[in-house]
Protein backbone atom coordinates (compact mmCIF):
# COMPACT_ATOMS: atom_id res chain seq x y z
CA UNK A 1 0.00 0.00 0.00
CA UNK A 2 2.66 2.46 1.04
CA UNK A 3 4.75 2.09 -2.08
CA UNK A 4 3.53 3.82 -5.20
CA UNK A 5 0.29 5.58 -5.89
CA UNK A 6 -3.04 3.86 -5.23
CA UNK A 7 -4.85 2.78 -8.37
CA UNK A 8 -7.68 5.12 -7.49
CA UNK A 9 -5.48 8.24 -7.66
CA UNK A 10 -3.97 7.13 -10.96
CA UNK A 11 -7.38 6.55 -12.49
CA UNK A 12 -8.83 9.77 -11.22
CA UNK A 13 -5.86 11.68 -12.61
CA UNK A 14 -6.11 9.97 -16.00
CA UNK A 15 -9.78 10.74 -16.20
CA UNK A 16 -9.31 14.38 -15.15
CA UNK A 17 -6.76 14.79 -17.93
CA UNK A 18 -8.71 12.89 -20.56
CA UNK A 19 -12.15 14.34 -19.86
CA UNK A 20 -11.68 17.59 -17.95
CA UNK A 21 -14.67 19.17 -16.23
CA UNK A 22 -15.84 22.20 -18.20
CA UNK A 23 -14.41 25.34 -16.70
CA UNK A 24 -11.95 23.48 -14.48
CA UNK A 25 -8.44 22.26 -15.10
CA UNK A 26 -6.54 20.11 -12.62
CA UNK A 27 -2.98 18.99 -13.31
CA UNK A 28 -0.80 16.98 -10.99
CA UNK A 29 2.52 18.49 -9.99
CA UNK A 30 5.49 17.00 -11.84
CA UNK A 31 7.31 16.11 -8.66
CA UNK A 32 4.34 15.07 -6.53
CA UNK A 33 1.40 13.18 -7.98
CA UNK A 34 -0.68 13.95 -4.88
CA UNK A 35 -0.45 17.71 -5.43
CA UNK A 36 -2.68 19.29 -8.06
CA UNK A 37 -2.55 22.72 -9.63
CA UNK A 38 -6.16 23.66 -10.15
CA UNK A 39 -7.62 26.51 -12.19
CA UNK A 40 -11.33 27.30 -11.96
CA UNK A 41 -13.02 29.75 -14.30
CA UNK A 42 -15.51 32.09 -12.62
CA UNK A 43 -19.00 30.79 -13.49
CA UNK A 44 -21.15 32.75 -15.91
CA UNK A 45 -23.59 35.29 -14.49
CA UNK A 46 -21.80 35.29 -11.16
CA UNK A 47 -19.70 38.19 -9.86
CA UNK A 48 -16.68 36.00 -10.54
CA UNK A 49 -17.40 35.72 -14.26
CA UNK A 50 -14.35 36.32 -16.39
CA UNK A 51 -11.99 35.59 -13.53
CA UNK A 52 -9.48 32.79 -13.44
CA UNK A 53 -8.94 31.39 -9.95
CA UNK A 54 -5.96 29.32 -8.96
CA UNK A 55 -6.34 26.67 -6.28
CA UNK A 56 -4.13 24.02 -4.77
CA UNK A 57 -5.39 20.55 -3.99
CA UNK A 58 -3.53 17.96 -2.00
CA UNK A 59 -4.43 14.33 -1.47
CA UNK A 60 -3.32 13.25 2.02
CA UNK A 61 -1.89 9.81 2.74
CA UNK A 62 -5.27 8.47 3.87
CA UNK A 63 -7.09 9.63 0.75
CA UNK A 64 -9.79 8.59 -0.15
CA UNK A 65 -10.57 7.75 3.47
CA UNK A 66 -9.96 11.38 4.40
CA UNK A 67 -10.82 14.48 2.39
CA UNK A 68 -8.44 16.25 0.01
CA UNK A 69 -7.08 19.59 1.21
CA UNK A 70 -8.11 22.46 -1.04
CA UNK A 71 -7.29 26.17 -0.87
CA UNK A 72 -7.76 29.23 -3.07
CA UNK A 73 -4.45 30.80 -4.10
CA UNK A 74 -6.13 33.74 -5.85
CA UNK A 75 -7.71 36.37 -3.64
CA UNK A 76 -11.49 36.21 -3.82
CA UNK A 77 -14.37 38.12 -2.20
CA UNK A 78 -16.71 35.36 -1.18
CA UNK A 79 -18.64 34.70 2.08
CA UNK A 80 -17.49 31.10 2.30
CA UNK A 81 -13.82 31.68 1.52
CA UNK A 82 -11.52 33.49 3.92
CA UNK A 83 -8.43 35.67 3.52
CA UNK A 84 -6.15 32.64 3.49
CA UNK A 85 -8.19 30.96 0.80
CA UNK A 86 -9.70 28.36 3.11
CA UNK A 87 -13.06 27.08 2.00
CA UNK A 88 -16.11 26.34 4.14
CA UNK A 89 -17.61 23.38 2.37
CA UNK A 90 -19.25 20.50 4.20
CA UNK A 91 -17.85 17.77 1.96
CA UNK A 92 -14.32 18.96 2.74
CA UNK A 93 -15.04 18.50 6.43
CA UNK A 94 -17.47 16.25 8.27
CA UNK A 95 -19.54 15.32 5.23
CA UNK A 96 -16.59 13.82 3.38
CA UNK A 97 -17.21 10.36 2.03
CA UNK A 98 -14.66 8.03 0.42
CA UNK A 99 -17.08 7.73 -2.48
CA UNK A 100 -16.52 11.37 -3.40
CA UNK A 101 -13.74 12.28 -5.82
CA UNK A 102 -11.49 15.16 -6.85
CA UNK A 103 -13.95 15.79 -9.65
CA UNK A 104 -16.95 16.06 -7.30
CA UNK A 105 -15.01 18.32 -4.95
CA UNK A 106 -14.06 20.69 -7.77
CA UNK A 107 -17.62 20.72 -9.07
CA UNK A 108 -18.87 21.61 -5.60
CA UNK A 109 -16.38 24.47 -5.38
CA UNK A 110 -17.52 25.73 -8.78
CA UNK A 111 -21.12 25.55 -7.56
CA UNK A 112 -20.15 27.48 -4.45
CA UNK A 113 -18.89 30.30 -6.66
CA UNK A 114 -22.24 30.40 -8.48
CA UNK A 115 -24.23 30.27 -5.27
CA UNK A 116 -22.52 31.90 -2.28
CA UNK A 117 -24.08 30.87 1.00
CA UNK A 118 -23.86 33.77 3.49
CA UNK A 119 -25.83 31.77 6.08
CA UNK A 120 -22.85 29.48 6.57
CA UNK A 121 -20.07 32.03 6.47
CA UNK A 122 -16.35 31.72 6.83
CA UNK A 123 -15.40 35.33 6.21
CA UNK A 124 -17.77 37.12 8.62
CA UNK A 125 -17.39 40.64 7.30
CA UNK A 126 -18.01 39.47 3.76
CA UNK A 127 -21.05 37.44 4.80
CA UNK A 128 -22.46 40.36 6.79
CA UNK A 129 -22.30 42.67 3.81
CA UNK A 130 -23.64 39.96 1.54
CA UNK A 131 -26.74 39.74 3.72
CA UNK A 132 -27.23 43.41 4.49
CA UNK A 133 -26.33 44.91 1.12
CA UNK A 134 -26.07 42.28 -1.57
CA UNK A 135 -25.63 44.66 -4.55
CA UNK A 136 -22.66 46.30 -2.81
CA UNK A 137 -21.14 42.91 -1.96
CA UNK A 138 -21.51 41.80 -5.55
CA UNK A 139 -19.92 45.02 -6.73
CA UNK A 140 -16.87 44.43 -4.51
CA UNK A 141 -16.67 40.80 -5.60
CA UNK A 142 -16.62 41.97 -9.26
CA UNK A 143 -13.94 44.51 -8.46
CA UNK A 144 -11.80 41.90 -6.71
CA UNK A 145 -12.28 39.53 -9.63
CA UNK A 146 -11.03 42.27 -11.99
CA UNK A 147 -8.11 43.16 -9.74
CA UNK A 148 -6.86 39.74 -8.73
CA UNK A 149 -8.29 37.15 -11.09
CA UNK A 150 -7.91 38.75 -14.51
CA UNK A 151 -4.83 39.37 -16.59
CA UNK A 152 -1.50 37.72 -15.82
Amino acid sequence: MASGLPKRIIKETQRLMAEPVPGISAKPDESNARYFHVVVAGPESSPFEGGVFKLELFLPEEYPMSAPKVRFMTKIYHPNIDKLGRICLDILKDKWSPALQIRTVLLSIQALLSAPNPDDPLANDVAELWKVNEPEAIRIAREWTRTYAMGN
Binding site: R86, C88, K93, D120, P121, L122, A123, N124
Partner: peptide, 10 residues
Protein backbone atom coordinates in the same frame (compact mmCIF):
# COMPACT_ATOMS: atom_id res chain seq x y z
CA UNK B 1 -9.33 25.51 14.07
CA UNK B 2 -11.01 27.09 11.07
CA UNK B 3 -12.83 30.30 10.37
CA UNK B 4 -16.26 28.83 9.81
CA UNK B 5 -18.77 29.52 12.59
CA UNK B 6 -20.95 26.59 11.70
CA UNK B 7 -19.56 24.05 14.14
CA UNK B 8 -20.17 20.36 14.46
CA UNK B 9 -19.03 18.70 17.67
CA UNK B 10 -16.86 15.70 16.82
Amino acid sequence: NGGCNHMQCY
